[in-house]
């Protein structure tokens, strides 16, 4: 019962945050409602017993990535969104298509679900077990992601560098 109440409260909160992200016209307001979505999703992970994922969600998503977003919004001095029409195909086909797909998925899950029920903290395994899995079975993907992150750092520095400063370093070298 308590699980159901907590689940519903934070599910409503996260969906409200997602809808608010769509309604708000100022990027900062959208970013803050995205923080609400991520925080309430972290609570949902805790309810399922995934403490590691909940902690990483708060640290990486609600912390690092959102700080990056807010920082870029402030750096570019982004104001309110301009009202332009955009693509008519997106409105005529995209929105009804997304709605239909969501309704079909929800109907299928409600009618034919074999997923069972989850008790509070149902997921087995403390973070130590996840580390065991990550550094044995998934060692190669883990190392590949470290290369990916390294390339992403270099790419971000190259892309965001001012064109003049790049030419200056070329001349100096």
């Amino acid at each position: 019962m308590l699980h159901m109440i907590l689940f519903l409260a934070f599910a409503v909160l996260s969906v409200a945050g997602a809808v608010n992200l769509l309604i708000q016209r100022h990027p900062i307001s959208s970013a803050l409602s995205l923080v609400v979505v991520m925080g309430s999703l972290a609570v949902e992970y805790l309810l399922l017993g995934a403490e590691f994922v909940a902690a990483v969600q708060v640290i990486v998503y609600a912390g690092a990535i959102m700080v990056l977003f807010v920082f870029v919004i402030m750096l570019l001095n982004a104001g309110e969104e301009e009202r332009t029409h955009g693509s008519r195909v997106a409105w005529l086909l995209g929105i009804p298509g997304v709605l239909a797909l969501t309704v079909i998925i929800c109907w299928a899950l409600v009618e034919h679900s074999m997923a069972g029920v989850a008790a509070i903290g149902a997921l087995p395994g403390p973070p130590a077990d996840i580390a065991e899995l990550l550094f044995h079975e998934f060692l190669l993907p883990f190392e590949v992601t470290s290369i990916l992150v390294l390339i992403a750092i270099m790419g971000a520095v190259v892309l965001a560098a001012r064109p003049e400063s790049v030419e200056q370093t070329k001349k100096e070298s």
Partner: peptide, 10 residues
Amino acid sequence: MVPLSYYLIL
């Protein structure tokens, strides 16, 4: 107890 399908719907 929450059905897992609720999580998938969310």
